[in-house]
Amino acid sequence: MGNKRKHSEAEAAVDVKKDDSAPERPKRTLLGFKNSDEDKKENDSFRVGFRNKEKVLVTCSRRISFRYRHLMLNLVDLLPHCKKDNKVESKESKGTALNELVELKSCSSCLFFECRKGKDLYLWMAKCPNGPSVKFLVNAVHTMEELKLTGNHLKGSRPILTFSSNFDKSPHWKLLKEMISQIFGTPKDHRKSKPYHDHVFVFSIADDHIWFRNYQISCPHGGAQKLDRGDLEKMTLVEVGPRFCLNPIKIFGGSFGGPTLYENPFYVSPNQIRSLDKRQKAGKYAKKVKAKTRRKMHELENPLEVDEFADMWNE
C-alpha cells in the first residue's frame, strides 16, 4: 500500500521537475521511479518513520506446574508477535542462556515464566539485548480455560491497551508501563495479526500490584464501520481471561541481570511467608509443653494446705 502511494507521488514529483528543468530521466528501480534524495526524505517523514518490530520470546522454566504452563500458553495465544520456545533450566546461569536464546530467535524482548518449588510463579519481563528487565511474582492466576470466563475473540486481533492513571505517578511504574505496552501491544501490520479490534487489555495498579484482565468488546453495530453515541453506550464487555496479578520485585538495568534499579520495599518472598507460617505452627506444641511444666512447677512450689474438714462427711 505504501509503495503504491510512493509510486504515484514520485510520478507527480517527476512531472513537476519536467516543468521547471531540463528533462532528466529518472532512474527506474524495481519499485518504480527512483526519487531524488530530498523527495525520499520527505516521503519517509510523511510515511511512518517508525515501525514496531517487536518480537517476544515466551518460555518457561522446567518443572512448571500445569496451571502456570496453561497461563503461558494463553499468553502465547494472545500475542501473535511472540515466539514460544522450549523450557529452559532455571539455574543461576539462566540469564546468559536466555539472552543467547533471545538473540538466536532474533527477538527484542522476553517473557520468562519461572516456577519455583512447583508453586511460586515468577515472571521475568525483559527487553533484550540491553535491558531493562523486571522480575514479578505472579499471583491470583486464572487461565482462559476456566468456564466462568465466557468471552471469546479473534486470535491475533490487536488489543487495545488500557492503563490506569497511576502508572504515571512514579518512575518505576512509568518504565513498567512502557515495557508492558511494548511487549503486550501487537505491532501494526504484523503478518499474523488480524485487522479488527475486538478485545481490550486492562493493566491497573491496585495495592502496588499490576492486575491484568482481558475483555472481549461486544458492540452492536449494523455492519457499517460507523458507531454513533448510542452504540458506544450500548457497548458491553465480556471477560475472556486469563487473569493474573503481578507483584514487581526488582527492576534490573540489563536484560536478565545488571545493576538493580528498583526494589520493591514491601516485598516478602513466599518462602519467607511459608517459613514464618510453619514457625508459628511449630511453636504451638512447644508452648503447650512449656505451659504444662510451668504449671507443674507452680503446683510443686505452692502445695495445697490439708483441708481439716475433708473427712467430715465420711464418718
Binding site: G49, F50, N52, K127, P132, R158, P159, I160, L161, T162, F163, S164, S165, N166, F167, D168, E178, M179, S181, Q182, G185, P187, K188, H197, S204
Partner: peptide, 19 residues
C-alpha cells in the same frame, strides 16, 4: 527503550484511564 513521542495511536493502541 521508549518509542518516539509522536508515535501515532495506531501503533500504540494504548489508552490511559483515570482511576
Amino acid at each position: 527503550i521508549s518509542w518516539p513521542e509522536n508515535v501515532e495511536f495506531q501503533h500504540k493502541l494504548s489508552v490511559d484511564i483515570d482511576q
